[in-house]
């Protein structure tokens, strides 16, 4: 973890290098998905022409493009731009002091979002919103339990009134996981 952190901090000092690596990583990711394992290996051993024949998403020809054609074109461009940035980034001087990463904020905010996705169907709108808001509020260093609970309750009532009763969004108030408490429906 420490290594990852220090690496990230270095990356934040050298924007071009970092962006270049991100672009290359995404280019390779989409390229691997387009070509599939066989095609991806073929790209490095036998070259592009062979890789295109083995691609998981058929590339086709310009006249009859397969689903792999446009992605292949784009990954090539993205890889090229990433490479330019890496070269530029290695040569450049560091961009100077940077703000630390907001680890706490990321943990609680992304955690709350993922929690909402994982439980909204099962627990329903009210319990999920209440818990997700409480979790999210802790992203701030100033949060206290009292304030968090107040926020959670007020927002849950607001959401229920506006989104469920007001606009009639198709969300169950409590979900099937809680049917043993509240009964189905």
């Amino acid at each position: 973890m420490r290594d990852v952190r220090s690496l990230l901090q270095t990356g934040l000092h050298r924007h071009d290098l970092m962006v270049g690596l991100i672009f290359i990583a995404f280019a390779l990711f989409f390229l691997a998905q387009t070509l599939g394992v066989v095609g991806f290996v073929a790209l490095f051993t036998e070259g592009l022409a062979a890789a295109m024949l083995d691609a998981a998403l058929p590339v086709g020809t310009a006249r009859r493009m397969g689903p792999g054609f446009f992605p292949l074109l784009l990954t090539g461009l993205l890889f090229g731009l990433g490479a330019i940035l890496v070269v530029r980034g290695v040569r450049a001087t560091p961009d100077g002091a940077v703000q630390p990463m907001p680890w706490r904020g990321m943990l609680f905010i992304l955690g709350a979002t993922l929690f909402f996705g994982a439980t909204v169907r099962g627990l329903g709108l009210v319990p999920t919103t209440a818990i997700a808001v409480l979790v999210a509020s802790y992203a701030s260093q100033r949060m206290t339990l009292r304030l968090g609970l107040i926020l959670s309750i007020v927002l849950t009532i607001f959401v229920l009134a506006v989104f469920h009763y007001g606009f009639g969004l198709p969300l169950r108030v409590t979900g099937p996981w809680l049917d043993f408490v509240f009964g189905p429906g």
């Binding site: 996705g117 909204v120 919103t129 926020l151 927002l155």
Partner: peptide, 22 residues
């Protein structure tokens, strides 16, 4: 910001009732 998170989550979910959107 907790309010924005709540609205964002509910908004994203209710378009397709799809947890992957979250």
């Amino acid at each position: 910001f907790p309010a924005i998170i709540a609205f964002a989550a509910i908004g994203s979910y209710s378009i397709g009732s799809n947890e992957y959107d979250l």
